[in-house]
């Protein structure tokens, strides 16, 4: 009965499939246990999220594919993807998802997990460094803009020193130091 010698279809060696047994089946549960990700498994791959995304056209993995990869257990690929960092966090995908999957929030969770594994792109580390050094990301240089609006030149109550001190105790500092 077990005669299946004659094979149809392409040979396995040429396809080089992803071996499902090598994927991390717990990844899905891990993400689901994180804030706002409970609805992950409700995804039915409609790709509304991708249609809504203003930037996914230049991504290798589109939002619906990333969600799918999470469900399948492709942890390595998702956490080292550049897309989770390129996400504008505009929430368009999340607003429109018909199954209430919190796509943007899930990408935040992915970023957090990636950070824990030290997988943060260098430009993001660069931003962190700037934040640590200057206590703010955008320094107001053009005083005239504020003046034109009738505001005093310096931002009132801005205490970059306090921010710097606090940041030293956060993961941002650990990441920046680890990244150096």
């Amino acid at each position: 009965m077990t005669e299946m010698e004659e094979q149809s279809g392409p040979p396995t060696t040429l396809i080089d499939p992803i071996d499902m047994s090598k994927l991390d089946t717990k990844f899905r549960e891990q993400i689901k246990s994180m804030p706002n990700s409970e609805e992950l498994s409700a995804c039915f791959a409609c790709s509304t999220c991708t249609a809504a995304c203003p930037i996914a056209n230049i991504w290798q993995y589109k939002p619906h594919q990333l969600i799918r990869m999470i469900i399948l257990g492709m942890k390595e690929e998702v956490l080292s993807s550049s897309e989770i960092w390129l996400c504008l966090t505009c929430y368009q995908c999340q607003e429109r998802c018909p199954q209430k999957v919190r796509v943007t929030d899930i990408f935040f969770d992915c970023k957090n997990l990636a950070a824990e594994e030290g997988k943060v792109p260098s430009n993001i580390i660069g931003l962190g460094k700037e934040l640590l050094e200057k206590g703010q990301l955008y320094t107001v240089t053009a005083d005239w803009e504020r003046e034109d609006l009738g505001l005093e030149p310096a931002v009132p109550g801005l205490s970059v020193e306090a921010v710097k001190t606090i940041l030293k105790e956060t993961r941002t500092n650990k990441l920046v130091e680890g990244g150096e």
């Binding site: 299946m4 094979q7 279809g9 392409p10 396809i15 499939p17 791959a45 799918r68 990869m69």
Partner: peptide, 23 residues
């Protein structure tokens, strides 16, 4: 895409995932 009888009565199956464009 492909079905191959594995050892011990199991079946190895390769599926083309059109959403991911991966096998």
């Amino acid at each position: 895409s492909l079905i191959q009888p594995g050892e011990d009565g199991s079946l190895d199956i390769v599926v083309y995932d059109s959403l991911l464009n991966k096998y």
